[in-house]
Design a protein around this nucleic acid. Sequence first.
DNA 1: GCCAACGTTGGC
DNA 2: GCCAACGTTGGC
Length: 167
Amino acid sequence: MGRRYWLMKSEPGCFSLDDLRTSPQGISAWDGVRNYQARNLLRDDIQVGDGVLFYHSNISRPAIVGLARVVRSGYPDHTALDPRSRHFDPRATPDSPIWYMVDVAYVTALPHPLTREDLGRHPVLGTMDVLRRGNRLSVQPVTPEQWRTVLTVAGLMDPLEHFAGAG
DNA sequence: GCCAACGTTGGC
DNA sequence: GCCAACGTTGGC
């Protein structure tokens, strides 16, 4: 299986793209996910090298604000074992950790954030899961086409590159 | 701050 | 196994 792409949501007041950028070596665990569907993605599907769209939620202008990549695949989320953590889950044990996380590395901020309005009026991006009303999944799959389109619309990829070698 | 949508819990 | 109650998420 080749590289896959994901969108990860975070409230910037809790953990922002800038928090990731300024983490040691630009790397942080994506911890605290307490939803089984998202857990399954973290544990089973997300692989090293996968691309991540970093999305800021629960603010006045929610938006895709940057890119990250996965640098460690799923491993037990130890914050579930820590009674002092606000992500503590008394059901979790070292043998049965229940919750999983991955490590992600900062890649870049988008020159301009892509707001929901931006996404919604684009023919390709308008179908993204994140726009679906009531969708609360904090880790979501993104298609390769959506990934490429985000990069192009954000100005991170020269559209003329498609024609390289064509003449 | 409001509230709709969603996931989880727990009584039955 | 059903489903009402509850807590949380997250756009607006």
